[in-house]
C-alpha cells in the first residue's frame, strides 16, 4: 500500500502533460472517492473490533491474500483501458501453473533445485504471455470482440490443463525451494508475495502513467480510429497489452504454486469476476480510455478488507456477499455522480 501512495503525483502530471483535456479532467483525483470508501471501511472495522482488525498480523494477511489478485488486476487495468476485457485469466493461470508444475514433477519434484525453479518460473511466464499474445492477436483483427475471444480462451486453456493432468492436481507441482522463499518467506516482516506484488504494481503503474506505451493504451481505449490516424499501430499495441495480461497471469501462477503448492485446477473459476470487480471499483471505465493502477489497488483491497473485517467482527457469512455487492454498486454510482457533476460545471 505504501508504494502506491507515492505514485499518483507523477501519474497525474504526465497525464496533464501528454493527454487530451477530456482525459486530463477524468484523471486528477479519480481515485479519491474510492479511497475514502476504503478508508471508511478500515476505520469502521478498527472501531468495531478493537485490537483485532488493525493489527500488523491482520494487515499482513489481507495483503498476502490480495497479492495474486493485485498482480492480475494490474494487467486487467491495461486491458480494460483499451476498452477490452479478459475473462480467461483464471484458466491461463491454471494452464501456466500446470505447465510449470509438470516440468517440476519430472525434474526433481518437491526437492527440486534452484535451476528447476528458475525454469519453472520461465515456463509459467512464457505460457501465460504466449496465450495472452495469441488472444491479443485475435482481438487485434477486430473480427471477434475481446469478450468472445477470452471466453473461448477461458474454456480452451482450462480444457488443455485438464487434458494434461487428467483433471487432477498433480502432486509435487511446486519445489520446496520456491514455497519456502516466495511462498512463505518474509523480508523485514513483509512477505515476499506482497513485495513482489507491490513491485509489479509500482512498475506497471509508472509504465501506464509515464511512458508512451501507457499513453497509447489510453488513446486506443478512447478512440481507436483516431489513434490509428495519429500513427499508433493499434493492432500491435493490443497484442502487447493482452500479452502483458497473460504474462501477469503466468506470474500469478508462480505465486499460486509458491503459496499453495498445488495447481488447484478447479479453484480459479471466479478469478476473472473478482479481478474485473476490483478494476471497476477502482474507477477504470469498462468503455475504455480511463482508469489507473492506483484505483485498481484500492479496488482489490475494498473486497479484501470487507471479507476479512466481516469475519473479524463475526458477521454471518451470507452477509459478506451482500456487502461486497452493495459496495461495488455504490462505489461506481458515487464515482459516476461525481464525474457528471464535474463535467457540468
Amino acid at each position: 500500500m505504501t508504494t502506491t501512495e507515492t505514485r499518483p503525483r507523477p501519474h497525474a502530471q504526465t497525464l496533464v502533460a501528454r493527454t487530451p483535456p477530456l482525459l486530463r479532467r477524468a484523471a486528477g483525483i479519480g481515485e479519491l472517492w474510492t479511497f475514502l470508501i476504503l478508508a471508511a471501511l478500515v476505520v469502521f472495522f478498527t472501531i468495531a473490533a478493537p485490537g483485532k482488525f488493525f493489527t500488523a498480523y491482520d494487515l499482513t494477511q489481507i495483503a498476502v491474500n490480495a497479492a495474486i489478485y493485485l498482480v492480475l488486476g494490474v494487467g486487467m487495468t491495461y486491458v480494460v483501458i483499451t476498452a477490452g476485457i479478459d475473462l480467461s485469466i483464471g484458466s491461463v493461470l491454471v494452464l501456466a501453473a500446470v505447465a510449470a508444475g509438470e516440468w517440476n514433477i519430472h525434474h526433481g519434484g518437491a526437492a527440486a533445485g534452484w535451476g528447476t525453479v528458475a525454469i519453472c518460473v520461465a515456463i509459467a511466464l512464457a505460457v501465460g504471455a504466449a496465450w495472452g499474445a495469441l488472444q491479443g492477436a485475435v482481438v487485434a483483427t477486430e473480427k471477434v470482440p475481446p469478450l468472445i475471444v477470452t471466453l473461448g480462451g477461458l474454456g480452451a486453456a482450462l480444457g488443455i490443463a485438464e487434458l494434461a493432468t487428467g483433471g487432477q492436481d498433480p502432486a509435487e507441482a511446486a519445489a520446496n525451494n520456491l514455497q519456502n522463499t516466495l511462498g512463505f518467506g518474509k523480508l523485514l516482516g513483509i512477505p515476499w508475495l506482497v513485495i513482489l506484488a507491490a513491485g509489479v504494481t509500482l512498475v506497471f503503474g509508472l509504465v501506464l502513467g509515464l511512458t508512451r506505451f501507457g499513453t497509447h493504451t489510453f488513446a486506443i481505449g478512447s478512440n481507436p480510429a483516431a489513434s490509428r490516424r495519429a500513427g499508433i499501430r493499434v493492432g500491435a499495441h493490443l497484442v502487447k497489452v493482452y500479452a502483458l495480461m497473460g504474462l501477469l497471469a503466468g506470474l500469478g501462477a508462480v505465486m499460486w504454486l509458491a503459496s499453495y503448492g498445488t495447481t488447484s485446477i478447479a479453484g480459479h473459476s471466479t478469478d476473472n469476476l473478482k479481478v474485473i470487480t476490483a478494476v471497476v471499483l477502482g474507477g477504470t471505465s469498462l468503455f475504455g480510455g480511463r482508469g489507473s493502477v492506483l484505483g485498481t489497488v484500492i479496488g482489490v483491497f475494498i473486497p479484501a478488507v470487507l471479507n476479512t473485517g466481516l469475519i473479524v467482527i463475526g458477521v454471518q457469512q451470507y452477509w459478506q456477499d451482500v456487502a461486497v455487492g452493495v459496495v461495488l454498486v455504490a462505489a461506481v454510482y458515487i464515482d459516476q455522480m461525481r464525474r457528471r457533476t464535474r463535467e457540468r460545471s
Binding site: K52, F53, Q61, S259, Y260, N307, I311, V312, G314
Partner: peptide, 10 residues
C-alpha cells in the same frame, strides 16, 4: 486461506 487467517485475527 483468507478465511482461516481472518478467523485467527478474531
Amino acid at each position: 486461506a483468507s478465511q482461516i487467517q481472518s478467523t485467527l485475527a478474531a
